[in-house]
């Protein structure tokens, strides 16, 4: 890392695109994503790792980006909510969140989707217990979690090619 007028160079991949930015030592990953990169889909609800709205996938694992130092992400591969849908359309998790109305106010939604995508990326056939565990750090004030859990389980089935 090179120090440039109190700023450090950081390189990372976000949603497949390579970025190089100069950031302050104390900056968080959430802030760099939102302010520097304009990726405002990642929400900040508490800014201290309690609510999970800022969850992104870093090197294959779900993490709360508001408590990740931006410089810790140097060299990392990051995925945010903006990178989940592809040219074929919505990811099955997004599809099910929309169809089952697991999206209410939508503020916790990106975090919930990223936490559950990290789960389904490594475990194609999760139990309901594993789903609850994966989103146990994501506060939702609207849904009571019933529809998000159902949406994630249904998306898993879809990803496994099960006819629904």
């Amino acid at each position: 890392m090179i120090l440039m007028s109190q700023k450090y160079k950081v390189n990372f991949t976000v949603n497949g695109d390579q970025y190089e930015r100069y950031v302050e030592a104390g900056e968080t990953l959430a802030s760099v994503l939102r302010v520097e990169l304009g990726l405002t889909g990642t929400k900040v609800g508490c800014d201290r790792g309690d609510c999970g709205a800022c969850t992104v996938i870093m090197n294959g694992k779900a993490v709360k980006s508001c408590i990740i130092p931006a410089l810790k992400a140097d060299g990392a591969e990051i995925q945010t909510i903006e990178g989940v849908a592809d040219e074929n359309g919505l990811h099955p998790i997004q599809q099910e969140f929309v169809e089952l109305a697991a999206v209410q106010c939508g503020y916790c939604t990106p975090g919930l989707i990223m936490a559950s995508k990290a789960l389904l990326d490594e475990n194609k056939n999760p139990t309901e217990e594993e789903v609850r565990e994966a989103i146990g750090g994501n506060i939702c004030r609207c849904t009571g979690y019933e529809k998000p859990v159902q949406a994630i389980l249904k998306a898993a089935k879809k990803l496994n090619g099960e006819c629904l």
């Binding site: 109190q6 302050e24 030592a25 900056e27 201290r48 130092p69």
Partner: peptide, 12 residues
């Protein structure tokens, strides 16, 4: 949360 007085970051 941003660390407002942090000046340096080492990652050896």
């Amino acid at each position: 949360m941003k660390q407002s007085n942090l000046r340096e970051y080492f990652r050896p």
